[in-house]
Amino acid sequence: MLRPYERAVYYYETDKMGIMHHSNYIRIFEETRIHFLSEAGMPFPDIEAQGILMPVLSVECGYLRPLRFGDTFTVELRITDFNGVKLGVEYTVCNKATGEVCAKGRSWHCFTDGELKPLRIKSRYPAIYSIFADNMEH
């Protein structure tokens, strides 16, 4: 099991109500994906250096409890769908101090070359394929 992503809410991420603005959760999902790849031994810059892009096809987030400036949160990432062409990821954001689930989300991605043409990574990039396949929940 890979370590969850963890950090504190920055002041600039909060809104007039003093809570993390909803748009920042989508950024946190991206930070979590980058963290996951580094933890799994395949930093995102190494993937891009091989000419592979992972554009977002869709993203959604449900907000359950607010996070405030200075709150430390963790994000658990689960790969729920993967076939070598498309990738589905789920996220659970928790307040570290209280353990409360603050948000849940999901994103869908595909693998493309630099011209955004779809790639099947299983045979051409087996090390990258295995990072996702080996960490997918069954």
Score class of each variant (00 low, 15 high):
residue 125 Y to T: 09
residue 66 P to R: 10
residue 107 S to W: 08
residue 19 I to D: 15
residue 32 T to G: 01
residue 123 S to I: 00
residue 79 I to T: 09
residue 66 P to E: 02
residue 29 F to K: 02
residue 39 E to Y: 08
residue 66 P to T: 05
residue 1 M to S: 13
residue 35 H to E: 00
residue 112 T to F: 13
residue 21 H to V: 00
residue 45 P to A: 05
residue 40 A to L: 09
residue 98 T to C: 13
residue 119 L to D: 01
residue 33 R to Y: 05
residue 19 I to V: 14
residue 68 R to L: 09
residue 80 T to L: 07
residue 121 I to F: 03
residue 115 E to A: 15
residue 54 M to Q: 10
residue 90 E to M: 07
residue 107 S to D: 09
residue 136 M to F: 10
residue 135 N to G: 09
residue 55 P to F: 04
residue 60 E to I: 02
residue 122 K to R: 15
residue 52 I to E: 02
residue 132 F to P: 06
residue 106 R to C: 09
residue 2 L to Q: 13
residue 86 K to N: 08
residue 45 P to F: 06
residue 21 H to I: 02
residue 76 E to C: 12
residue 13 E to P: 01
residue 38 S to C: 05
residue 42 M to K: 12
residue 117 K to E: 02
residue 68 R to G: 05
residue 100 E to N: 10
residue 16 K to Q: 14
residue 101 V to T: 15
residue 138 H to V: 05
residue 127 A to M: 04
residue 124 R to D: 13
residue 24 N to H: 13
residue 81 D to C: 12
residue 48 E to A: 07
residue 122 K to T: 01
residue 32 T to P: 03
residue 40 A to G: 02
residue 3 R to M: 05
residue 85 V to S: 11
residue 138 H to Q: 10
residue 1 M to I: 09
residue 76 E to I: 09
residue 31 E to T: 01
residue 63 Y to P: 15
residue 98 T to R: 12
residue 15 D to Y: 11
residue 14 T to C: 11
residue 19 I to N: 11
residue 93 V to E: 07
residue 95 N to G: 03
residue 69 F to H: 08
residue 68 R to T: 03
residue 4 P to Q: 05
residue 64 L to H: 14
residue 45 P to E: 04
residue 108 W to Y: 12
residue 91 Y to T: 07
residue 97 A to L: 10
residue 71 D to W: 08
residue 11 Y to V: 08
residue 136 M to P: 03
residue 43 P to V: 01
residue 93 V to N: 04
residue 19 I to A: 15
residue 89 V to C: 15
residue 26 I to H: 15
residue 74 T to I: 14
residue 56 V to I: 09
residue 39 E to T: 07
residue 118 P to V: 04
residue 69 F to M: 12
residue 101 V to Q: 12
residue 63 Y to D: 14
residue 112 T to P: 06
residue 35 H to D: 05
residue 55 P to L: 01
residue 68 R to D: 07
residue 67 L to Q: 06
residue 65 R to T: 06
residue 28 I to Q: 11
residue 32 T to L: 04
residue 35 H to Y: 08
residue 90 E to W: 10
residue 133 A to E: 12
residue 9 V to L: 11
residue 117 K to Y: 00
residue 25 Y to R: 02
residue 32 T to Y: 04
residue 67 L to A: 04
residue 102 C to K: 10
residue 65 R to C: 06
residue 79 I to E: 11
residue 127 A to I: 02
residue 95 N to Y: 03
residue 132 F to R: 04
residue 63 Y to N: 13
residue 93 V to Y: 11
residue 37 L to Q: 10
residue 123 S to F: 06
residue 47 I to R: 05
residue 56 V to C: 08
residue 119 L to M: 08
residue 131 I to E: 01
residue 110 C to V: 07
residue 125 Y to S: 14
residue 50 Q to V: 08
